[in-house]
Nucleic acid binder design. Structure first.
Length: 666
RNA sequence: UGGCCUAUGGUGUAACUGGCAACACAUUGGUUUUUGGUACCAAAGAGUCUAGGUUCGAUCCCUAGUGGGCCAACCA
């Protein structure tokens, strides 16, 4: 197989460069470092996909490291959920590790740093420290404890560790530079006292290391080669390196690899929020049923909704990796799940909004079991039998008493196919007192060969199985609910994001098991929800099918709008465009461009052209095109004026021969 | 009154580090079809934020401007 040379993203470029500069391939090592304080969401899958994807690409180990340095927020429940979600996505970590595993090493290094005069104990209030820290635009000032003696620092720090102080009394900070333009370098905090129970270390510790001190050193201990994180950590890099370089002095023999932190832009999805804190609020306020509510952008939510690991991995691949802020349209995610399910999901029939259809010339007591293909995309999927009888349900939207011939479905007097069954013809309707259609009467023919425009799905009323179908709409009505300074994201919650439908499904579905995915033909993809029981089927609508009919429908109302004729671009614009590349293209194309410009020039007025006389000297191509166009205008009777003469004479002095030649021609 | 990052069709990402701006989604036509699905074919859509500079040649390198983002938690 010829490996297709896929273009590399900027991180892969960095790795390739390191490799060519002598980094041995077997030294490559990555990590995914979640804090166990919430559930993983679709945004995390980007980070997961990048690090684990790199691991797969280079056959390098990827550690799963729980960044568990804040016992106030972290729980075992989240650890378990995160592991389950990553496994479900199909990734394997080399080692399951915890930052808390390194508490003792970190502590010893911190003591070394104190001994080297690189860290000190500060005993002020957090307010006082914030004061001294300055602002992004104003430098900070040194605090009163900054020059404590090493011995005092050592003593205080040990007593902090021993639990002699309350929270907030003392902290340990690195001694860097209170005037540094990067605020993170203004003597950042390394340790704080926290008398909390930790989900792994219990009550062993009452001082806990901060992120910056822990994260880079954990990377270093694990000998991670490339530490990838999102853009907001860019300012942390200076500190990451500062700590790393100092610790390297203590451990370079046993730990020779110095990790590199590199940052990429995180994923944003339209109509979605990605903040753990805000997702937690949706759960706590009961807006959704839990972290795994099918409307949630969490991995567990997507899983329950019916998304496949494959579809999510493809999505992440397509999203790409770069450094600029981005908003991905949800339609890409939907495309990815349809793409996957189209190939794999068995087709079945279900009617969500039923109306009874009676085939008057079909015997009342007759029933037939007709063969139905399970998946036209998969020849190995086989077929099943579905029952047919005189009375079936069809979708209410599939019938109109009369309609234009754009309507391919059932109407009175015309024919349509019942999928996998017969061709029927609409004869008449029965309505109740309110004029609501209660029955559609039709006749059938066994000639199934003939061509008809439409095909309907159906379920035999006698054999139909009741099922609950949950149809979801986006959770937020705003494209970026997160991004309004003046409004809370909760204001944009869509009140109608869940619709519960009593539906009829074909009997083959009675034994459908939780998690199984189907295509309800002509409707969309559905999976069996966790709430389903042997007595009550429950389906989630994962995503609808693409529906080009739905797009046609709203048209009649807007028909009156004057048809905007395909606006042709003004000739002068096209000329500018041709000109821009003029000097870069091969001669043959140049001639073609010139011919085109000559033709277009006929449609150009002097007023259009005049502004181009001021084109920057550098833009020779545009000037040539302008010159050619000017030639046409002059030929057609345009009189010479000062502007024209100045433009031509300036061109005559140019270095570019083409331009000079065109100018001479005038 | 600062520092850092960033700017390419509607969206996202490319362009082998300077050589006719490509791919995917979305859009619009068409063909096939017992799913108005799928598949296939085609079209349209940017000349790369602006102004300078270097160069035979700039999306790419340099400078300045402008727009967007991040940075002042004993959070990660």
């Amino acid at each position: 197989m010829s490996e297709e040379t896929k273009s590399l993203n900027f991180i892969e470029h960095i790795i390739e460069e390191d490799l060519t500069n002598g980094l041995s391939k077997d030294k490559l090592r990555f990590r995914f470092p979640p804090e166990p304080n919430g559930y993983l969401h679709i945004g995390h899958t980007k980070a997961i996909g990048i690090s684990f994807g790199l691991g797969e690409k280079y056959n390098a180990p990827v550690n799963l490291r729980f960044d568990d340095t804040n016992p106030a927020k972290e729980e075992q429940e989240y650890v378990d959920a995160i592991k389950r979600d990553i496994k479900w996505l199909g990734y394997e970590w080399a080692n399951e590790l915890y930052s808390s595993d390194y508490f003792i090493t970190l502590y010893n290094w911190a003591v070394q740093l104190i001994k080297d005069g690189k860290a000190y104990v500060d005993s002020q209030s957090s307010e006082a420290m914030a004061q001294q820290k300055g602002t992004p635009t104003q430098p900070g000032v040194d605090g009163p404890y900054r020059n404590r003696s090493i011995d005092e620092n050592l003593d205080l720090f040990e007593r902090m560790k021993n639990g002699e102080f309350d929270e907030g009394e003392h902290i340990l900070r690195a001694k860097i530079d209170m005037q540094h333009p990067n605020m993170l370098m203004r003597d950042p905090i390394m340790y704080r006292v926290l008398k909390k129970h930790h989900h792994r270390t219990g009550n062993d510790w009452c001082i806990y290391p901060m992120y910056d001190w822990t994260h880079g050193e954990s990377d270093y201990i694990e000998q991670i080669s490339h530490s990838l994180c999102s853009l907001e950590f860019k300012p942390h890099r200076a500190l990451y390196d500062w700590f790393k370089e100092h610790v390297y002095e203590y451990a370079s023999e046993s730990l020779p690899m110095q990790p590199k932190q590199r940052e990429f832009a995180r994923l944003n999805l339209s109509y979605t929020i990605m903040s753990k804190r805000k997702l937690l609020k949706l759960v706590q306020d009961g807006v959704v049923s839990g972290w795994d509510d099918p409307r949630m952008p969490t991995i567990s939510g997507l899983r329950r909704r019916g998304y496949t690991p494959n579809s999510i991995r493809h999505f992440i691949e397509r999203v790409g990796v770069a450094k600029r802020e981005n908003v991905i349209d949800v339609s890409l995610l939907e495309f990815c799940i349809r793409e996957d399910l189209n190939k794999t999901a068995p087709r079945v029939m279900a009617v969500l909004d039923p109306v009874k259809l009676i085939i008057t010339n079909y015997p009342e007591d007759k029933e037939e079991w007709l063969e139905a293909e399970n998946n036209p995309e998969d020849s190995t999927a086989g077929s099943r039998e579905i029952p047919f009888s005189r009375e079936v349900y069809i979708e209410r939207a599939d019938f109109k008493e009369e309609a234009s011939n754009k309507f391919f479905r059932l109407k009175l007097g015309s024919e349509v196919r019942l999928k996998n069954a017969y061709i029927i013809k609409g004869e008449n309707v029965v309505k109740n007192a309110e004029g609501h259609i209660t029955e559609i009467h039709c006749t059938y023919t066994t000639d199934t060969e003939k061509k008809v425009k439409g095909t309907l799905h159906w379920v035999s009323t006698k054999h139909a199985v009741k099922a609950e179908v949950r149809e979801y709409d986006r959770l937020f009505i705003d494209e970026a609910p997160d991004s309004h300074q003046d409004k809370d994201f909760m204001e944009f919650v869509n009140p109608n994001s869940l619709k519960i439908i009593d539906a009829f499904v074909e009997p083959s579905l009675v034994n459908a098991k939780i998690g199984e995915r189907f295509q309800f033909q002509r409707l969309g993809y559905f999976n069996v929800d966790d709430d389903a029981t042997p007595e009550q089927l429950v389906f989630n609508k994962t995503v609808g099918l693409r529906d080009s009919w739905a797009k046609l429908k709203p048209k009649p109302q807007q028909q009156n709008k004057p048809q905007q004729p395909q606006q042709k671009r003004p000739a002068i614009e096209v000329i500018k465009q041709l000109g821009k590349k003029y000097t870069n293209v091969p001669e043959a194309k140049q001639e073609k461009s010139k011919a085109e410009i000559l033709k277009l020039a006929e449609a150009v007025s002097y007023d259009d052209l005049q502004p181009l006389f001021n084109t920057a000297a550098k833009k020779v191509g545009t000037r040539i095109a302008t010159m050619i166009t000017l030639g046409v205008l002059l030929k057609n009777g345009q009189e010479r004026n000062d502007d024209i003469n100045a433009f031509i004479s300036k061109a005559l002095d140019d270095k570019n021969e083409l331009l000079v030649a065109e100018a001479k021609a005038l």
